[in-house]
Design a binder for these strands. Structure first.
Ligand SMILES: [Mn+2]
Ligand SMILES: [Mn+2]
Ligand SMILES: [Zn+2]
Ligand SMILES: [Zn+2]
Lengths: 135, 135
DNA sequence: CTGTAAATAGAAACAATTTCTATTTAGTAT
DNA sequence: ATACTAAATAGAAATTGTTTCTATTTACAG
């Protein structure tokens, strides 16, 4: 918890009740959430709470390295707590419970060319069913 | 060209001027396009031409296996001609000219579990600069 | 040719996200 | 403690990308 507050400060962001609550939320649910899901949860705690603020805060937490952006097949944004910090990696998501875990091995990493292309960026997302959701 | 018309017929779709023009467009430009880009091109040929129709046709061509959906980091849909047909593969896209090529080797293929997860789906997209765009 | 289901344009609805404006607040400087 | 200021906020409105709806037109089988 403290380390997240540190990250906010180090990046010039203020520690507000909203941000505290959003971090809490991700820590306690342990899965990835869309801005709308975060908003619904926050509204239980704060009766005045705007969706644009949620979007801004999720981006702020992303900039601090507290959250990562999970790329899903739908057109929504998804964010999750990232344990591995800045090290390049990808994510595997459970389609039942939404849990997000790191995949450390990256097939692309280390390769600088495919088919003569100079590789600039890539992303990968794996979806599956985690051990506990399979019983 | 003929093979594409075959594919339409085999899937119960009619061969219309719009569809002919869309296929032409992808064959001649050799890169991936968003619905809006396709629409702009079509409007040069047909003075009455709706964007919803473009969306419907791109989905129709996708169902026939003529086009594939390219997953980009933006919130737009992108489609491209797919040479490899139904075989599982991913794509590398040139960020300069938009050209799309197949990546046959898939890091996930053959692996059925990562971190105890039963893998259900995955996607991967690589962006780079192709040999001719680098001179 | 004729009939019918599919394809179409254009308007409107929709969903996710972003921008704008006025008000409030966190953290710093007194 | 108090005042100050830049950052954070709510709520409304705008934007963007996509889908749905309705009436009209068209491809193509019979
Ligand atoms: Mn991670
Ligand atoms: Mn392909
Ligand atoms: Zn990687
Ligand atoms: Zn693959």
């Amino acid at each position: 918890m403290e380390k997240y507050f540190e990250k906010l400060k180090n990046n010039g962001f203020k520690l507000t009740p909203r941000r505290r609550a959003i971090i809490d939320l991700f820590v306690s649910c342990g899965s990835h959430l869309s801005p709308e899901m975060v908003w619904h949860k926050l509204k239980l705690k704060f009766k005045r709470c705007g969706l644009p603020g949620v979007y801004r805060n999720l981006e702020a937490l992303l900039k601090c390295g507290i959250l990562v952006r999970i790329q899903q097949a739908d057109r929504k944004k998804h964010y999750g707590l990232c344990v591995s910090g800045d090290n390049h990696h990808h994510h595997i998501t459970c389609i039942k419970c939404g849990k997000v875990e790191d995949i450390k091995d990256c097939a692309i990493r280390g390769i600088d060319k495919i088919k003569g292309y100079k590789i600039v960026s890539h992303f990968m997302q794996v979806n599956g069913i985690c051990a506990s959701c399979r019983e």
